[in-house]
Every structure is written in C-alpha cells, then in structure tokens.
Computed example of a mutant assay.
Amino acid sequence: MSNIVALPRQETGDLIDRMAADLIRFEATGTESDAIRSLMATRRYSYGDIATLLDDAMTAARQQIVAAEMARAS
C-alpha cells in the first residue's frame, strides 16, 4: 500500500511547473542526480514529490529551454 496521496491534476501540474522553474534556475537539467540534489536543496518539495514528479519536471524544464532558444533564434 502506498503512502503517497494523489494530488488533484491542477495541483500536480502547478508543482511540476514550479519544479521545472527551479531546475532551470539552478541549471540542473543535465542529470537526474543534479536535479534531485537541486530540488532537495530548495526544501520546497517532499521526497515523494521529487520521486514521483522528477521525470515530468525535467521534461518540462528541457522543453521550456528549447522553446526559449527557438524563440530567440527566430
């Protein structure tokens, strides 16, 4: 049985967005270990949130970086 409480979809999306913004701010999108270390250092996220949402947050952060670079190039 899992101890993780399911968050409503909107709250999960907001949390992923905040995590992605922190990953970009700390330039921690390269490796999973860098991302985990950076998010843990903020003390804004629980272990469970990081474990379950890290992949989505890293993907969102990378997509934002690519979009910003494409906008700058055009």
Rank of each mutant, 00 (worst) to 15 (best):
G13T: 12
A57V: 02
Q63W: 07
A57S: 12
D22Y: 10
R25E: 13
I24K: 01
A60R: 03
R18M: 13
L53Q: 08
A20D: 07
R44M: 07
I50T: 11
I65G: 05
D34H: 06
R18Y: 07
R25W: 10
F26T: 00
Y47G: 09
D22S: 15
A68M: 05
R43M: 03
A35I: 06
F26S: 03
N3G: 15
T29F: 10
L23R: 03
T42K: 00
T12D: 07
E27Y: 10
E69Y: 09
L39D: 09
G13E: 10
A67G: 02
A73V: 07
G30V: 05
D14M: 15
A35F: 01
S33N: 12
T42Q: 00
Q10P: 03
L23Y: 00
A20P: 08
A35R: 02
D22C: 14
A68Q: 04
E69Q: 13
T52Q: 14
L15M: 13
A68H: 03
D22P: 09
Y45D: 10
E69G: 08
G13D: 05
E27V: 12
R37C: 00
A67N: 12
A67L: 13
M40I: 04
I16Q: 06
S74I: 13
M40S: 02
Y47Q: 09
L15K: 12
S74L: 14
R62V: 04
V5P: 03
I50Q: 08
D56P: 01
P8N: 11
D56A: 15
L23C: 02
A51C: 08
D49Q: 15
R9D: 03
M40V: 06
L53D: 03
A6L: 15
